[in-house]
Design a protein around this nucleic acid. Structure first.
Lengths: 345, 345
DNA sequence: ATTTCTACCTTTTGCGCATAAGGTTTTCTA
DNA sequence: TAGAAAACCTTATGCGCAAAAGGTAGAAAT
C-alpha cells in the first residue's frame, strides 16, 4: 500500500501537491509535475485509505443496510428470497453512486446504531422494522435514514419511508378473492403492526365494500420464524376446512402453507385458494403458480438509495412517505367458488 | 459523537488515561478515575471511531464478502436463493466474531481488490469466482482470503478454498439416476470451469462405472444469466425428447427448466426426470420436490469465516482445500425407467 | 538516608489524508 | 517600472485514536 507521503518523498515534492493531482486540482500544479505524479499513481496502483479520508472529511462513504428478516433461527440462513432480491438491488444502486455498503442482519436497532456511529456511516437504510424495534433506542439519532417496508415513530428519527401502497394491494387482492366468490377468507400475517397492519386495513375495507365484516377468528398471526414449525402448520391445516381462501401477507408464508397443505391432500386451488404478497421468485416457481401482489423491487431499492443520498447531500425534497404502486398478479392459486358454497372438508 | 479528547478535557485528565479505561487497562488507573471515566462513557454513549482506530492499528475489523452471483441483468436482483442463504450464514458468523461485513456483488475482482485495499479490509471471502475472473488482477494480492465454491490460480494469492465434495456429489446423483435406469442423461452447467467442471468429472466417472461414455451432445452449457431467456429454454425444450433425465448443476437451473417444461406439457417425473444441486429452499418448495445434492450452508459459512480469522490472526493450520460432505436428497423429481426404454416424445 | 519500586499520570508521536495559510517566482498590467 | 496577479510550490495543522516514552509522587527496601 503506497501512501501519498511515500510518493511525495520519491518525487521530492510535498504531499499537498500529490494530493492536488489526485483530486484533479491540476490548475495548481504544473503539467510536468502532474505527469510525474500520475505515472507513480499508475505504477504503484495507489488507492486512497478511506479510513484516513473519513477522519478528515467526517464522512465515510458507507451506507449501512440493516435487514430485519425472516431468518432461520438455527441455521441463520435468509430464507425469504425477497430479501436477497432487495439486497441485490440496493447493492447495485449504492455502488453505482460511489458508496460502499455495510450490512447488518439484525433487529436490534440499538446495536445497529452503535455500528453506524462507530463507522461514521453516512446514512442508514432499515428494512422491515417495526415500531417496537425502536423502543430501546435511547439517544435521538440524527443520521440520514430511509426505511423500507417499515413502521417507526416519527419522534425518534427523521426519515423517509419507502413502501408499497399496501392498503391498496391488500384491498385489490381481497376484492379479487371476493369477486371470485370467496367469503370465508383467512388473513395470515406476521404481526399486527407495520405493513401487515396496513394490509389488514385494506383487507377489511374490501370486506366492508362487499357488506362483510372481518371476523376475529379469521385473523391468523404467526410471528416470524414460527410459521415454519410443524405445530404451526398443523394448526393451520386443522383450520383449513373453515375457509375457501387464505390470504397471506408474504409469498413466503403462502408457499410454505401451500406446500404443507398439498402434501396432506388438500388440492390447491380446487379445495382451497391461496394468495401471497411480494411477487418474488418463489411465487412464479411454485405450482400452482401463486396469485399475489406484485411490486418493483428494483425501483424500491433505487428509490431508497436515491432519497438517502438526497438527505446526505442536503438536496431539498418534500416527500417523507413514498408509496410505490402495486398490482395484483393473477396466476393459478385461486379458483372461482360459488358464494354460497361452504368450505370443503 | 463524543471523543476521547472531549472526555479527557471534561475530566481534566489526559486522553491516554481515558483510552486506558476504555481498554480495560485499569491497573494503570486509580479506581476513582476509572469510575469517573466510566460514568462519562455511559452518559454520553461513547462509541469508538473505527476509522481512527483502523489508522493506528493498521487493521479495520472489516471482512469483505464478494459474491459473483446469478443476478438478473436488468433488475439487479439476486435470483438464486442460495446466495441469500449463504449471506445470512456469513453475516451471522462474522458478527459473532466481532467483525463487520462489507459486501460487493460483482465479478470484477480488480474492482473488489481496490475496495478492499481502500478500506484496509482485514480479509476477503470470494464466492463463486472462476479462474478467468482473476486474470485482470495485476498485483500480487496478499490479504487473507477464503474462497467459497471457487476456482482460482494458486500463484496469484494464498487462499483456503471451502467447497463441497462436488465430484462425489455429482458422482452419487448420477449413480442414482443410472440405478433408476436412466441412460440418456443431459448434463446442464453454467460453464466448464470451477465447480461445474468438477461436477462434470464426477458425472463422467459414474457413467464410466456403468460402462457408458459421455456424449458431447449431452453436455449443455448456459452461461449465467442466459438460461432464463426464452430462447435458451425453448432450445432445451426441443432437446428434451432426446433424454430421460436432466442433471443440473444448480437447483436454480433445475427449477427454471422444470417449470418451463411442465408449462408446455412435459410431465415431471413421468416424462422426464430432473435433478438439482445445492438443496436450497426452492428445491423443497417446487412440485414435484426436487431430488438434489444437499449441503450444509450454515457450516460452509462458518468454516469460511473460521479459516479467514485463523489466517488473520496468524493461527497455524494445514488445510488449503476443504471439501464439505455432500449427500443426495431424494425427493420426487426422478422416476425409475426401464434402461431399454427410449426417451419419450 | 539513599535507592528502588510502584501506582498513577502526562507528553509526544504518528497513522494517511485534506486543507488553510504561507511562500516564491514569473508574468502581466497600468 | 512599480505593483498586482497568476502560477506553482511548501509548511503547518488536525481529524480520533493508540502506544511509546517520560514524568512525579509516596511507599518499600537496602
Amino acid at each position: 500500500m503506497i501512501t501519498i507521503k511515500d510518493m511525495a518523498e520519491m518525487l521530492g515534492i510535498s504531499t499537498t501537491t500529490v494530493s492536488n493531482v489526485i483530486h484533479g486540482k491540476t490548475s495548481e500544479v504544473s503539467q510536468k509535475t502532474v505527469e510525474r505524479v500520475e505515472k507513480l499513481l499508475e505504477e504503484y496502483e495507489y488507492v486512497p485509505n478511506i479510513s484516513a479520508r473519513s477522519l478528515t472529511q467526517n464522512c465515510s462513504n458507507i451506507i449501512g443496510v440493516a435487514l430485519k428478516c425472516r431468518k432461520d433461527k438455527y441455521t441463520n440462513l435468509i430464507m425469504d428470497p425477497f430479501f436477497g432480491e432487495l439486497l441485490g438491488a440496493l447493492e447495485a444502486e449504492i455502488r453505482a453512486r460511489g458508496y460502499f455498503m455495510m450490512i447488518y442482519i439484525s433487529n436490534d436497532i440499538s446495536e445497529i446504531i452503535r455500528n453506524v456511529l462507530t463507522w461514521n456511516v453516512d446514512g442508514l437504510i432499515l428494512v422491515g422494522m417495526l415500531h417496537d424495534d425502536f423502543i430501546r433506542v435511547k439517544s435521538r439519532y440524527k443520521k440520514p435514514t430511509v426505511l423500507i417496508d417499515s413502521y417507526a415513530p416519527r419522534e425518534i428519527m427523521n426519515y423517509v419511508n419507502i413502501g408499497l401502497d399496501d392498503e391498496k394491494g391488500a384491498y385489490e387482492i381481497t376484492c379479487y378473492l371476493l369477486k371470485m366468490g370467496h367469503r370465508k377468507i383467512a388473513f395470515l400475517a406476521d404481526n399486527m403492526e407495520g405493513v401487515d397492519y396496513i394490509r389488514f386495513q385494506g383487507h377489511q375495507r374490501a370486506l366492508l365494500d362487499y357488506g362483510l365484516e372481518m371476523q376475529e377468528e379469521n385473523l391468523l398471526i404467526f410471528h416470524p420464524g414460527t410459521v415454519e414449525r410443524e405445530s404451526s402448520l398443523r394448526e393451520l391445516y386443522c383450520q383449513a376446512k373453515n375457509y375457501t381462501a387464505f390470504m397471506c401477507c408474504s409469498d413466503y408464508y403462502a408457499v410454505i402453507l401451500m406446500n404443507y397443505f398439498m402434501d396432506r391432500g388438500i388440492k390447491i386451488p380446487e379445495d382451497l385458494s391461496v394468495t401471497g404478497f411480494d411477487d418474488n421468485l418463489m411465487s412464479r416457481i411454485v405450482r400452482p403458480a401463486l396469485t399475489t401482489v406484485g411490486q418493483d423491487v428494483t425501483e424500491k431499492g433505487q428509490l431508497a438509495v436515491d432519497y438517502l443520498l438526497k438527505m446526505i447531500q442536503g438536496t431539498e425534497f418534500s416527500e417523507s412517505d413514498v408509496k410505490l404502486p402495486v398490482k395484483v398478479v393473477i396466476r393459478d392459486s385461486v379458483r372461482p367458488v360459488q358464494p354460497e358454497e361452504s368450505p370443503k372438508e
